[in-house]
Simulated assay, not measured.
Amino acid sequence: MTRAGAGAGAGAGVRSADPAGIDWVLARMRALEAGLPPRDGVAVFNRVYLAVTQEVARRVTAGGFGDRAAAAELDVRFARRYLHAVDQAAAGRRPPACWRPLFQLRGHPAVQPLQFALAGINAHIGHDLALALADTCRARGLEPRALEGDFNRIGALLVAMEERIREELMPGPDILDVADPLTHLVGSWTLEAARNAAWASFRALWALRALPDLTEELTDRVDASVGMVGRCLLTPLG
């Protein structure tokens, strides 16, 4: 089975078009929040992701997406990849390469909360999103263009959240000091660029879906490259 195929199986426990699956995701994230020390790197990302998922759930309920059922399914399949990585790490198994830096450095005292948040977002958007989009298209019999509108709506929400995250988690008063190592480091990565790359990866995976060897190779390379970016984002700064 290819990596992409395995990803489809990981989401099989969620029925298609079942918005209640978002409630399950929220319950898992809240349980993680309650069970982790606040300064833990995974806890920092989890708080950010919980806030995003709560807003997505609100908009799904309010009819804020073009295809409510598809948006709910995408949200759940997307979140399950993060939660699966959490479960793998908790069981002593190796999570995907994109997630390893966060789990390996989650307790490092010289890594700032903002770095943990951005490293988690990088892993999730840069690697998991493309696979979740492909899983959703397969499960619902859709073509990529059917998800593009809601992808952009979620993207606008994420970009707004990124701005808030940077404001809330950036330490100290000198956030515009370009000579500061943290300012320089986190300024080298943007969610918008990661989101655009995720859409391109999704389109490539979808075009290669009948060629499992190439699909697996592309998935592995994206995983490794996103992991390398995550490692850079988590550079200890003292």
Score class of each variant (00 low, 15 high):
residue 31 A to E: 14
residue 34 A to E: 12
residue 34 A to M: 03
residue 35 G to D: 06
residue 35 G to L: 02
residue 35 G to T: 14
residue 36 L to W: 01
residue 36 L to I: 07
residue 39 R to M: 05
residue 41 G to F: 11
residue 41 G to A: 09
residue 41 G to T: 04
residue 41 G to L: 05
residue 42 V to C: 08
residue 43 A to H: 06
residue 45 F to I: 06
residue 46 N to R: 01
residue 47 R to D: 11
residue 47 R to E: 10
residue 49 Y to V: 08
residue 49 Y to E: 10
residue 50 L to R: 12
residue 51 A to L: 11
residue 53 T to H: 08
residue 53 T to N: 13
residue 54 Q to T: 07
residue 54 Q to G: 09
residue 54 Q to H: 04
residue 55 E to P: 05
residue 55 E to K: 13
residue 55 E to L: 06
residue 56 V to E: 12
residue 59 R to D: 01
residue 60 V to P: 13
residue 60 V to T: 05
residue 61 T to S: 13
residue 61 T to Y: 03
residue 61 T to A: 11
residue 61 T to R: 15
residue 62 A to H: 07
residue 62 A to T: 07
residue 66 G to R: 15
residue 70 A to Q: 07
residue 72 A to N: 14
residue 73 E to V: 07
residue 74 L to R: 05
residue 74 L to T: 01
residue 75 D to V: 02
residue 76 V to F: 00
residue 77 R to T: 00
residue 77 R to M: 15
residue 81 R to W: 15
residue 81 R to P: 05
residue 82 Y to F: 15
residue 82 Y to S: 07
residue 82 Y to W: 15
residue 83 L to D: 04
residue 84 H to Y: 15
residue 86 V to C: 12
residue 88 Q to C: 14
residue 89 A to T: 03
residue 89 A to H: 06
residue 90 A to N: 02
residue 93 R to G: 10
residue 94 R to W: 04
residue 95 P to M: 12
residue 95 P to A: 14
residue 95 P to S: 13
residue 96 P to S: 09
residue 97 A to T: 12
residue 97 A to E: 14
residue 98 C to K: 13
residue 98 C to M: 11
residue 100 R to T: 04
residue 101 P to M: 01
residue 101 P to I: 00
residue 102 L to K: 05
residue 102 L to A: 09
residue 102 L to Y: 14
residue 103 F to T: 08
residue 103 F to P: 04
residue 104 Q to G: 03
residue 104 Q to C: 02
